[in-house]
C-alpha cells in the first residue's frame, strides 16, 4: 500500500510527523479523507478530530481546534492552533482525552462542530 507523509504542527511544536496510509480531516466545508496521490488542495480546518491510518495499521486520533491543511501528492501538512493526540497507554490516554475535551470546549466555533468532535472523543474513550 502506498504511503504519504503527514505533518501536524502547532505553535508549541510538532505533534505528528510520519508516513501514513490515510488521513481524515475536518475541513470547513465538510469532512474529507485523503489518500496518497490526492490532488493539491488547501483548506481551512474546523474544530474536530483528525483520524490517521498509520503505516502499521493503527488508528490515531488527534483533536484539533482550528487551522489549515495543505495537501500535496505525497505530503499533507496540517497547521493548527492546538492539538492533542489521543494515543499512548491507558494512563496517558485518559489524560489526553481530558485535555482534548478541554481544547474543544475552548474552541470558538459553532456548537455543532464541537459537539461532533466531542462525541468522537467520547467514542474513542469508550472503545479503549
Amino acid at each position: 500500500m502506498e504511503l504519504m507523509k503527514l505533518e501536524i504542527v502547532t505553535p508549541h511544536g510538532v505533534i505528528f510527523d510520519d508516513e501514513v496510509k490515510q488521513v481524515t480531516l475536518p475541513g470547513s466545508e465538510g469532512e474529507f479523507g485523503v489518500l496518497p496521490k490526492h490532488s493539491t488542495i488547501l483548506s481551512l480546518l474546523n474544530t474536530g478530530v483528525i483520524v490517521i491510518d498509520t503505516k502499521d495499521n493503527k488508528e490515531i486520533s488527534v483533536a484539533i481546534n482550528s487551522g489549515y491543511v495543505k495537501v500535496e501528492e505525497d505530503r499533507t501538512l496540517c497547521i493548527v492552533d492546538g492539538a492533542v493526540a489521543l494515543s499512548g497507554d491507558d494512563n496517558n490516554l485518559a489524560k489526553a482525552i481530558e485535555e482534548a475535551k478541554e481544547l474543544l470546549q475552548k474552541a470558538t466555533q459553532s456548537n455543532m462542530g464541537i459537539a461532533t468532535a466531542m462525541s468522537k472523543v467520547e467514542h474513542i474513550s469508550k472503545t479503549l
Partner: peptide, 27 residues
C-alpha cells in the same frame, strides 16, 4: 491545480494573515 476550500480567497487569506500575526506576536 491548487484547489482552495472554502472557495473564497479572501476568507482564507484573512484567516491566514490573522494567524500569521497571532503567531508573530507569540513568537
Amino acid at each position: 491545480e491548487l484547489e482552495v476550500e472554502p472557495d473564497d480567497d479572501d476568507t482564507i487569506i484573512d484567516a491566514l494573515v490573522k494567524k500569521y500575526i497571532d503567531y508573530t506576536m507569540y513568537y
